[in-house]
């Protein structure tokens, strides 16, 4: 009798898929411990970071392609504004981290790509592809986790295209200019860099908000 009741309560509170989710989470923790103890702590942190990001992206339905598309196509900017907010926090955080690293004589973290025509051309091709496949790089991975078989095809295409691009890379990278360290503080000084970037993000946020108001009255 009590056993049946307990079983029923378990069934309601921990349905099958939720049990699976706990099981996979536990297994993921095990992978973390293995990576950390036997291979490399950076890999272990990357694994946990990926799990958290995937969980967040799925729960909040954030898709970068939609953030780039919806404002222009539909006039919806809520998602785009959330990304701008995220970038705002990231900018302040990165700024502080970079200043600290420099003051300690440590390497400067960040994603710096030599400027040149390869960036606009590549970004354009990437954008077209993202629209066609219905999701960006992160969106494709999230959808695979959600069970979309179609996104396996997108990922396969992504790997083919990336390899193809790597093979052709040398030809494209001849478009490189001399500016190989386009860190804004390096170009215009720390104070102006942080001021201009934060101001730009605020302006974009306000513009997006007004644009949505204008579109929907």
């Amino acid at each position: 009798m009590i056993n049946a009741k307990l079983k029923k309560s378990l069934e309601i509170n921990f349905p099958k898929q939720r049990r699976m989710s706990f099981l996979i989470a536990l297994f993921s923790l095990l992978i973390y411990i293995c990576l950390y103890s036997y291979i490399d702590s950076t890999l272990a942190y990357s694994w946990i970071f990926g799990l958290l990001v995937g969980f967040t992206l799925q729960r909040s339905r954030i898709c970068f392609t939609a953030a780039l598309r919806d404002p222009i196509l539909f006039g919806m900017t809520e998602l785009a504004r959330a990304i701008i907010l995220s970038l705002f926090i990231m900018t302040i955080g990165y700024f502080l981290i970079q200043i600290y690293q420099l003051s300690q004589g440590l390497p400067l973290p960040g994603r710096f790509v030599t400027l040149g025509w390869h960036i606009p051309i590549g970004a354009l091709i990437f954008g077209i592809g993202a629209a066609l496949s219905g999701g960006c790089a992160s969106g494709t991975l999230v959808r695979i986790g959600e069970g979309f078989r179609l996104q396996w095809i997108a990922l396969l295409g992504f790997i083919f295209g990336s390899t193809h691009g790597a093979y052709d890379g040398d030809r494209w990278y001849r478009l490189f200019t001399d500016i190989d360290f386009p860190h804004l503080p390096n170009l215009i000084g720390w104070r102006w860099a942080i001021l201009i970037q934060l101001l730009l993000l605020i302006i974009l946020y306000v513009l997006a908000y007004l644009w949505e108001k204008y579109k929907f009255g």
Binding site: I121, G122, A123, L124, I125, F126, G127, I128, G129, A130, A131, L132, S133, G134, C136, A137, T140, I153, A154, L155, L156, G157, F158, I159, F160, G161, S162, T163, H164, G165, D168
Partner: peptide, 9 residues
């Protein structure tokens, strides 16, 4: 689409 994303990136 995936191919273009890969090549472009």
């Amino acid at each position: 689409g995936g191919w273009l994303m890969g090549y472009g990136s």
